[in-house]
């Protein structure tokens, strides 16, 4: 008997084909709702560190698309973990797996329903992992902070290694490369 997960999750892949539109490049790979099916998928696909720069993996709850425009993401934000290229071999895959295990295992205690999904962006210089939460309103500051602390804990990040919480609407309207950080821990 397989071990059921609390939620059904969908893995997406973004292929950076310049000849196609952004939406055409975003592909839904498959969904799973048991631990065993997660592992058979994970063991079957390329690791994030093996993807060509410009590509993304996204793992989101079924029914939520990995984009700002999705109704479940519009009011939300993301905890951003940045990893230098030199960390790609050592840390990227471990961090991405740990974030996925946190999500499918519902490890965010009372706040798990606020977690929508996560994306890993493999880029030439700096890879980024973003964990997307549903509501970035000030009233949910303690919820989003608790989620951020859990991420730092599970990833064994020191105080020196900061992660930043950004509202999607700030990320969308950012000038230059850096979006406004609402929290940093």
């Amino acid at each position: 008997i397989k071990h059921p997960l609390h939620n059904t999750w969908v893995l997406w892949y973004y292929d950076n084909d310049r000849k196609k539109s952004w939406a055409e490049n975003l592909k839904e790979i498959t969904s799973f709702s048991t631990v065993e099916d997660f592992w058979s998928l994970y063991n079957h696909i390329k690791a994030a560190s093996e993807l060509k720069p410009g590509s993304d993996y996204s793992l989101f709850k079924k029914g939520i698309r990995p984009m700002w425009e999705d109704d479940a993401n519009k009011q939300g934000g993301r905890w951003l973990i940045s990893l230098e290229k030199r960390q790609r071999e050592i840390d990227l895959d471990n961090c991405w797996l740990e974030i996925m295990l946190c999500m499918i295992g519902e490890s965010f205690e009372g706040n798990a329903d606020e977690v929508n999904g996560a994306t890993v962006n493999v880029r030439p210089k700096v890879d980024k992992i973003g964990l997307w939460t549903a509501d970035a309103d000030k009233s949910k500051a303690d919820v989003n902070m608790a989620i951020g602390r859990k991420i730092k804990d599970r990833l064994n990040l020191s105080n020196r290694q900061q992660i930043h919480f950004q509202l999607h609407r700030d990320t969308q309207t950012k000038s230059g490369s850096a979006a406004k950080n609402t929290f940093s821990i």
């Binding site: 071990h3 997960l5 065993e36 592992w39 063991n43 295990l101 295992g105 599970r154």
Partner: peptide
């Protein structure tokens, strides 16, 4: 309702089960 939660160790243990 009750939430189905898995510790990291349980998930890692299940990785190797056939």
């Amino acid at each position: 309702g009750t939430r189905i939660v898995y510790e990291r160790s349980t998930l890692m243990h299940l990785r190797n089960s056939p």
